[in-house]
Design a protein around this nucleic acid. Structure first.
Lengths: 256, 256
DNA sequence: CGCAGCAGTTCGACACTGTCGAACGGGGTC
DNA sequence: GACCCCGTTCGACAGTGTCGAACTGCTGCG
């Protein structure tokens, strides 16, 4: 700490802290925010008033909610130079996978040590999901996450692992750093990763990494319910599919 | 003015002004922002440092860009109580339309006098587009926009029209308030709207309104290139399709 | 080679403003 | 009717966001 925090705007920090809290609890009131964030009601009130007036929040009764302008900014982020090629390539290929398999498929991008759902699509036999556009997930508890770790330089992996607490999500979640490193090594060798109920009971994934440059690391995964997660389909077909498609996305990202 | 602007946080305003500028120019530097926004370089610098450190912006060379965390907030906005039903219903139906027609289709939601691209999908013969997720459009220059106006209460329509300058986008854009009101009246009667190159040359739309409650007004449109915008297809089939699907979305939004 | 010119960055100082706690008004409930 | 808790307003102070000037480092031009 103390590295790049020369002069910063404290009130902007609190503004975004408020926004984040509202977003994660899906609505909050002045008093709730004041209590949980440790600010006076009047301070919170002033912030909410500002953000509402600018349109970034909207109000139902006494509850404030995050507004659609963030979708505008999110869309802008996705069509940034760094990401727009990936978006274009990923969308087409993911939709293809969904058409072929009927499962759920997604691209997750590494952003500052976390994975962010970048594009997602669901097929006719899709499984229910808490994860939708923009959801951020920890890299250690998902198949995509581990494929991302498998292609990051060692020092970044160590940095990320030491900053995360490896919180278990299910009884199958890998929480031991040593075992995690071993698994990552395996993934690095064979090129794809499995998640067998490590994050959510009853849900499995197959994933492959997508490298679009040193700064843009992503992963692609197909999600299936455990009942379909076995045999030729899960051991051969899907791994082949995701690794092939990941390579196609990489190529399409380069030339466009 | 002077109504609800009691006590507001000025620095948060400038923070978001900076973010908006960066987003609309797809990247900007300290000096550019200082110049165009009328702040000192040091002020802008402090803001950028804060936002970058929080992850909301990222930096390439000396250019700052909007980051993926906004996608997280945007996703949260879309799965807010007010919007999540609409999202679920709209996604399924829009994807259906795209499968059937191969065109581009989208749902646009009214938010504070503007239309925001809420969900969009493109088919195999989709037309190129500058509009993607989160894009905000004026209500007077699009077919969806006018269907939205057609179901809003008169006073809100007047309010919105008086606040917008009716800037022409093409030579076909309706800029006369009287004519606009007439067209809206027509749409109100027959239930759907056309856009014949009013916003973009070579591109036409058919749209129908979606009412999901007094606070959640949206519209659905199918976009086709002018060369396909004629005959039975454009005059009968598409209008029937969009009005029917709009009704289905309304129903599915109510019960879930 | 060096000097201008322009980038981003740091610094110190001041006026402003974001912050707080207390007080107000209004809907509930017991 | 008295309580409680909500959002809101107020005034005052400390804190900080703001500015311009000065610093660094780079580029390119003379």
């Amino acid at each position: 700490m103390g590295s790049t925090e020369r002069k910063q705007i404290k009130s902007t920090r609190t503004a975004f802290t408020i926004i984040e809290r509202i977003s994660s609890t899906d609505g909050a009131t002045v008093s709730e925010l004041a209590k949980t964030l440790g600010h006076s009601k009047s301070t919170v009130h002033a912030h909410l008033q500002t953000l509402t007036e600018m349109g970034y929040l909207f109000r139902i009764g006494d509850e404030y909610h995050v507004g659609l302008p963030f979708l505008t900014l999110g869309g802008a982020a996705r069509s940034t130079d760094r990401y727009q090629n990936l978006y274009r390539a990923a969308k087409a290929e993911i939709d293809d996978i969904v058409d072929q398999t009927g499962e759920r498929a997604q691209v997750v991008v590494e952003y500052q040590g976390e994975g962010i759902y970048f594009y997602q699509s669901r097929g006719h036999r899709y499984v229910q999901t808490d994860s939708q556009l923009g959801t951020s997930v920890s890299l250690h508890s998902t198949a995509v996450g581990k494929t991302i770790l498998s292609v990051l330089p060692d020092d970044r992996v160590e940095e990320i692992l030491s900053n995360s607490e490896l919180r278990p999500r299910t009884e199958h979640t890998v929480v031991d750093r040593g075992e995690l490193r071993e698994r990552i090594e395996t993934i690095r060798e064979r090129g794809y990763a499995y998640d067998r109920e490590e994050r959510i009971e009853g849900i499995c994934c197959v994933a492959a990494p997508i490298e679009c440059g040193p700064e843009t690391i992503a992963g692609l995964s197909v999600t299936v319910p455990t009942k379909r997660a076995s045999g030729e389909y899960f051991e051969k077909e899907l791994p082949t599919l995701v690794t092939n498609v990941a390579r196609v996305i990489e190529l399409n990202t380069q030339y466009s």
